[in-house]
Design a protein around this nucleic acid. Structure first.
Lengths: 148, 148
DNA sequence: TAATTATAGTTAGCTATCTAACTAAATACA
DNA sequence: TGTATTTAGTTAGATAGCTAACTATAATTA
């Protein structure tokens, strides 16, 4: 392994650990009945203002396999947080939309996340986040292209 | 949400996606019978030259819960890649060590990883990795402290 | 038109990760 | 000494993620 290889490994190792620490911190403050993945979907509907979205589109949006999305959507539906209906335009497809209960749950999640986010803002220098964000975006975009 | 909150969320979102893309790419080139988590443990033994390590130490090394490590070590043992013995110094504990088969497997994994790592080095500007690595380390250290 | 190919989703089976609850052994302390 | 607390590991039961294989429908093409 060259020193560049070692550097690349180091970057992905740090990213893996940070992802784990952040997921853990967020999970702590979400309502017990909902996961990060599930919150992400509810938040996606609200942020982007979609009326509905197909499971395949959601899988693409979140860079996740279709069986994974299928599974997560089933759980959300079982909890009444989304509604899944046949797609009138495509006999194979479905349409997913957020319910009022889902919107309320999303609000509760946001409220819970406020604490850790405030802690984070207190502990992490803002310049660090400002410096690191565009670099991460650049790296993510390169990796996205490599995938295709 | 303030713009700082949004920035923080953005950072963790990018990190989550990069972690997923990297894991996926690495999984593709490892032997079918071994996972990233398992490779990480074999690599840990070789890199650090440990004769043995307790499951609790390994859980700490990898920032993972003890049941998780217990599970991964069982799989490695079942595959003959590590050996697990009673700890003569502590009746509660165990000692884990890598086997010759484990070392060979680790070599095969490293060989498989060479391809993606080369691609990465071809596509990602080295300055990007050099700039981002210390920032990630800083962020990880802060988050580690917040955890305690 | 009929056959082939592509796409949407699901099911089954795998690994990793977590928390909660448990056993057994070591340590601390009253 | 004897009890209480801590520590090491495991078991049980979740969720998220993956691939492979399947069904059903749509789109393409011969």
């Amino acid at each position: 392994m060259t020193s560049r290889d070692t550097l690349a490994f180091g970057v992905f190792t740090e990213i893996g650990i940070i992802d784990q620490l952040a997921s853990h911190a967020f999970t702590q403050v979400l309502p017990r009945s909902i996961s990060i993945a599930q919150f992400g979907i509810l938040n996606h509907f609200v942020r982007l203002g979609h009326d509905y979205r197909t499971p395949a589109q959601l899988a693409e949006d979140f860079q996740v396999s279709r069986p994974t999305m299928s599974n997560t959507l089933s759980r959300l539906e079982r909890s009444g947080l989304v509604e899944i209906m046949a797609n009138p335009d495509d006999g194979r497809g479905k349409r997913v939309s957020i319910t009022d209960k889902g919107r309320t749950m999303r609000e509760q999640c946001i409220a819970g996340l406020a604490g850790p986010v405030a802690d984070m803002n207190a502990q992490v220098p803002p310049e660090l986040l400002e410096k690191i964000h565009p670099l991460l975006t650049q790296l993510r975009e390169i990796m996205d292209q490599m995938r295709n």
